[in-house]
């Protein structure tokens, strides 16, 4: 039986991966590659309903509550997309860390890995971008699912 890493382990993995990069260019190239690799959200889910409005870049996020295959509590399955590659890469990281976790875990998650890999600026309110709005939206889904 595969064991899902804890949320903290998943974040640490990302931090360790990024520790290998010497400069901004390597870091961003990695983010951009992750953006290119992110499975696109199914076309029928890329709707205005699933659009998280940001001023600069747009993010589409879909969340569904699915039974855990191992018989545990139901988990949130996330798919997402963005029209900007860097946002998409960051979204991919967030999805990687939070996918298949219970709504309670998502609600309690302290996501500090974005800060720790030196990309906190993407959560700055001045960016008014899709990433911060997407995290808010994810928590709203989790709150709705946990009721």
């Amino acid at each position: 039986m595969k064991s899902t890493p804890t949320l903290e382990q998943a974040q640490q993995e990302v931090v360790d991966e990024f520790a290998l990069f010497a400069d901004w260019q390597d870091r961003y190239e990695q983010i951009i590659e992750m953006g290119k690799d992110l499975p696109l959200i199914a076309a029928d889910l890329k709707t205005d309903d699933n659009l998280v409005r940001g001023c600069q870049s747009r993010v589409w996020l879909h969340a569904r509550l699915a039974p855990d295959p191992d018989g545990g509590p139901a988990v949130m399955q996330l798919t997402a997309d963005s029209d900007a590659l860097i946002t998409k890469g960051l979204v991919a990281l967030v999805v990687r860390v939070l996918n298949n976790r219970t709504p309670e875990e998502v609600l309690e998650a302290k996501l500090d890995f974005i800060d720790r890999i030196g990309l906190r600026e993407h959560l700055s309110p001045t960016r008014s971008n899709g990433l911060a709005s997407m995290l808010d939206q994810m928590r709203r889904y989790a709150l709705a699912f946990s009721r």
Binding site: W24, S57, E121
Partner: peptide
Amino acid sequence: VHHYDLGTLLDQQGIAVRTGH
């Protein structure tokens, strides 16, 4: 090329521009 990506990568190079609508 999305303007958000471009603005971000320009900022990394010390260049301040405006992006968006």
